[in-house]
């Protein structure tokens, strides 16, 4: 039987709700962030304005381009693109709906209509990266990023592609009361948005991390057991283990997880990006803001509304250079 193909992370980027793209710019959110205007940052990162692009497309364009700029080599044309988005085009969908439905004027604006297509962000990612390969948009509210990452991982392991750009992004809609109609949050949960991107490949050279597994746990599965199983399967020696808890884990469950393994370090990335369906993409992408003196096992866990679990595990390699050291916009 052939050895399973290893999949590595060669570059990453995370764009937060305060236009933050690297560690120095991250802000600890105390309340819902103000609406972000991305036009200028888009121009800076992409090199030209995307005149007809929606906010969601801008989130994708900035994040994906930052990730590609941090890649040590030019990404080849046959890079597959996988995009996960929980709610997809919230603002443009709302705009065309209001234009068309009574008492609106009754006709959709052509640009708003085109941008309301849920795969437009993936098109822009491919166009800006000059990628003419597989291009999939997964949009299913819960676990949209995790399922997307799983698809990419299995495609790479099956040898369909040797490299893939995988991202997750979601936009919020103001005011909060509007947003809550689509995405229920508790009062103490901050309404977030952002994007996170990983460039995956099957070659080991210059990799920053190895993507180990993306696993699903059935409804009601015990997160602590899943975590323990994963650590048992993947831990090398005495390397540190860092847990990133997702936004659907409640405080009691997080507390249980914190004590499930001795020496487990917790990282509250949600404090920087707020809550959104694909926040995991931000949380994982932002890990690469930092240098990691020792190889470190990272585990991200989240639940969905029905109680199912998704777990992502990766090993960060020791490095003395963070991704944001390499390129800042």
């Amino acid at each position: 039987m052939a050895e399973p193909v290893s999949v590595y992370i060669h570059a990453a980027a995370a764009l937060g709700p305060c236009l933050d793209t690297c560690a120095a710019e991250r802000t600890r959110l105390a309340a819902d962030p103000p609406p972000a205007e991305l036009k200028e940052l888009t121009r800076k990162v992409v090199g030209a304005p995307l005149r007809q692009a929606s906010h969601l497309i801008e989130l994708a364009a900035i994040g994906s381009q930052l990730c590609l700029k941090r890649l040590p080599w030019p990404a080849p044309e046959n890079t597959a693109v996988y995009v996960g988005t929980g709610l997809a085009e919230v603002r443009k969908t709302h705009a065309v709906f209001n234009q068309v439905m009574p008492p609106g004027p009754g006709m959709a604006s052509p640009f708003d209509f085109i941008n309301a297509a849920n795969n437009m962000a993936a098109f822009y990612v491919a166009k800006l990266g000059n990628f003419r390969a597989r291009n999939l948009t997964v949009t299913q509210e819960e676990f949209s990023f995790e399922r997307t990452l799983q698809l990419a991982l299995t495609d790479l392991r099956a040898g369909c592609y040797h490299q893939a750009l995988v991202g997750g992004m979601d936009e919020n809609s103001q005011p909060r009361s509007n947003h809550l109609r689509r995405f229920p949050l508790c009062d103490d949960q901050i309404m977030g948005e952002g994007s996170g991107w990983l460039y995956l490949g099957t070659r080991r050279e210059q990799a920053r991390a190895e993507l180990l597994t993306v696993r699903h746990g059935a409804r009601g599965a015990d997160a602590a057991s899943l975590l323990a199983d994963t650590v048992r399967a993947w831990l090398h020696g005495s390397e540190p283990v860092v847990l990133l808890p997702g936004f659907r884990l409640d405080k009691t469950e997080i507390a249980r997880l914190a004590t499930a393994l001795p020496g487990l370090e917790m990282r509250d990335y949600l404090a920087h990006c707020g809550c959104f369906h694909t926040a995991a993409a931000f949380g994982i992408g932002a890990l690469f803001d930092h240098t990691w003196p020792k190889p470190t096992l990272i585990v991200h866990i989240n639940r969905d509304g029905a109680g199912g679990l998704m777990l992502v595990a990766l090993r960060l390699f020791a490095s003395n250079e963070s991704d944001s050291d390499r390129v800042t916009p």
Partner: peptide, 9 residues
């Protein structure tokens, strides 16, 4: 306005 994944779940 439901996200495309709403139905699948």
């Amino acid at each position: 306005l439901r996200a495309p994944g709403y139905f699948a779940q």
